[in-house]
Amino acid sequence: MSSVATTKTARQEFWDGVRDEIPLMLGVFPFGMVFGVLGVEAGLEPLVVMAMSVIVFGGASQVVFVQMVGAGASGLVITGTVGIINLRHALYSATLTQYIQGLPMRWRFVLAYLLTDEAFFISLNRMQTKPPSPYMHFHMLGTGGLLWVMWQIATAIGIGLGELIPDALNLGFAIPLTFMAITLPQITSIPPLVALLVAGTVAILGQDLPWNIWVITAGLIGMIAGYCAEMLLAKQNRAPNDGGQA
């Protein structure tokens, strides 16, 4: 009993995930409500709006979905746009798989379903900064599980309250704030700053591209820019005086 526990149990990892995810709810919950309101405003039945939060489970893409329905877009264009907006999750998928080598497929199905921006980055932080454990996937079950439950409740409240939530509250602004709170601690050197600035610039310049392709394009170009900056800096630090310190 007196020995120091070196690895956390599955249960502890799960509850750590839930706990780490709680602060994010201040951003996620209003966003889910905004989605519920927009869905009803676009003329969709409450059941359809609710089902979308279960079937798609991707905030930004759900908002674009209902906006496009409201604007009279075709089903094919809507599906394609949602698919392209959510293509960034393939990058999260590639990142996550490095930390859960050998985990069985049934787990991979569950984690893939729960793989959202706000859950993934919180669990990634745990995987990168705390000692590895064979139960790290339970952390993601905790972050993703809490997010899932709260997203459904927030959607339902948004559907119920509808226009009672004034537009002037600008609740959608909670999302860039949430993402900034996740990103800022990562900007500790030049290369991630380059990645951020390049991605942001491409995202702005690419706004008129069809099918919201700017999200994934900006993300990819930003990542490559960050990597190039890292390589250039490493080269510069090596080159000037044959490896000696200045």
Binding site: A60, R88, L91, Y92, T95, D117, F121, L124, G172, F173, I175, P176, F179, M180, I182, T183, Q186, I187, P191, P192, L193, A195, L196, L197, V198, A199, G200, T201, V202, A203, I204, Q207, W214, V215, A218, G219, L220, I221, G222, M223, A225, G226, Y227
Partner: peptide, 14 residues
């Protein structure tokens, strides 16, 4: 660089 890139691509236009 996935976090600063993808999140910036969402934040900055927002």
């Amino acid at each position: 660089y996935v976090a600063p890139s993808v999140l910036a691509a969402i934040i900055i236009p927002d």
